[in-house]
Write a protein that binds this DNA or RNA. Sequence first.
DNA 1: GGCCAGGTGTAAA
DNA 2: TTTACACATGGC
Length: 214
Amino acid sequence: MNGIERLFKRLYEHFGPQYWWPAESKFEVMIGTILTQNVNWKNVETAISKLKKERIMTPEKILKTDDYILHGYLRSTGFYRQKSARLKEISRKILEEGSVEDFLDADELRTRLLGIKGIGPETADSIALYAGDIPIFVVDAYTKRILERCYGIQGSYEYIQDIFHKNLPEDLHKYQEYHALLVKLAKKHCKVKPICQGCPIALDCGFTTQKATS
DNA sequence: GGCCAGGTGTAAA
DNA sequence: TTTACACATGGC
């Protein structure tokens, strides 16, 4: 068992399954991946609740909603002007394909997603993994932080992603759980400051018991 | 009051 | 190819 598999095993044994992505529909997953860009998930939940309460959690309704109104619903997620435009753009692309299912089932999902303004590698992979059921590893800021602290590994998005792809069997549910578990660990024990406080995973690294230096 | 949060696009070095 | 910056709100 390699280090990447060992890390997964320890995370899973400690935290248990996370059952990600937290959403009631594939479209809601897609909306969530865009709204959570560089923003606390709590702020995203507020906005998603409003979209559901107003019954506009569909591509058709999003497109029909006035920009000014949509801005109000998305305000808590920050960058709300950009994000309103991005939700409308992906809704438009979905309807061009027919439906959410058609959009997700068509060929070259990741490539098509990356062609949409406002969707970068992490958002594209999150949609592919959690809505498209395609086994591709999602790399986020938490993943990079944990790898750097625990293993001294740094690199581009693709470099980090390759490490997971090369060290894990291609397994949709394992990829889904692994990413969720990394987020769980980082939120609880791998904050920016203080670093790695009370990490329960006992990784083979020099940081797990180190106290904050500033 | 300052730091941080499940990024991305654009422009300049 | 890398770096700097804008985008913006809310929790702690």
